[in-house]
Amino acid sequence: MAASPYERDVIAPVAIYHRVEFGDPDPNLPGQFGYFYNYIDYDFTLGGRTLSARHYLDEPQRALLLGTPVEDELTLLVLQFLLMRYDTLEWLGRDGYLKVPKPVMNAVRERLDIHLARSG
């Protein structure tokens, strides 16, 4: 039996979607360059709550938490999952996407170090 690609992770996504979105910025102004988004969405679930993350393929080192984050166990686990893959983690703040605050990232890094030492 094949091993799960996430067996060494602290949490595994319950769904992964690859999506491409494109279109015109304004249909009344033809000929303008529109938008083109090529991204992967991850959905995670714990305790009846779902949290989604997104990675735009043209930004190889960056991942985003979608929705307003709650500093709970699910968020910390998802941030650990993302930190194993991406260097820059952001979440949605009042003024758009912001880097995850340093105190939260310090806690995530500490938890990830412990996890990696145990599974090493």
Rank of each mutant, 00 (worst) to 15 (best):
Q80F: 08
E90Y: 02
S52L: 13
P5M: 12
R19L: 14
E7H: 04
Y6S: 06
P60N: 03
G34S: 04
L79W: 08
G48C: 14
I11F: 04
R118Q: 08
I11M: 08
K102L: 08
T68W: 12
L89D: 05
P5L: 15
P101H: 00
L116N: 05
K99S: 10
V108D: 00
G120S: 07
T88F: 09
T68Y: 10
I11L: 12
M1D: 06
F44I: 07
L29V: 14
A12S: 11
L76H: 04
D24S: 08
D9R: 00
Y42H: 14
F44T: 06
N28E: 06
G120H: 11
R49I: 15
Y86N: 03
L57W: 00
W91S: 03
H55G: 03
K99T: 14
G93E: 10
R49Y: 13
M84Q: 14
E7N: 02
M1C: 05
A53V: 15
F33Q: 01
A63G: 10
E73C: 04
Y42W: 13
R111V: 01
A63M: 11
H55V: 07
N38G: 00
D58S: 10
V104H: 01
M105D: 02
K99E: 11
Y17M: 03
V20H: 13
P69M: 12
L83Q: 00
I16F: 10
Y17I: 10
R62W: 09
D41L: 09
Y37R: 13
F22I: 00
Y17L: 06
G23N: 02
L89K: 01
V78A: 13
G93A: 11
E59P: 05
P27M: 08
A107M: 11
A117H: 05
D24L: 14
T50K: 13
R109D: 03
S52W: 09
D58L: 11
A63W: 05
V100Y: 02
L116F: 02
S52M: 13
D72A: 05
D26P: 02
P5A: 12
V78L: 11
V20L: 15
D9W: 00
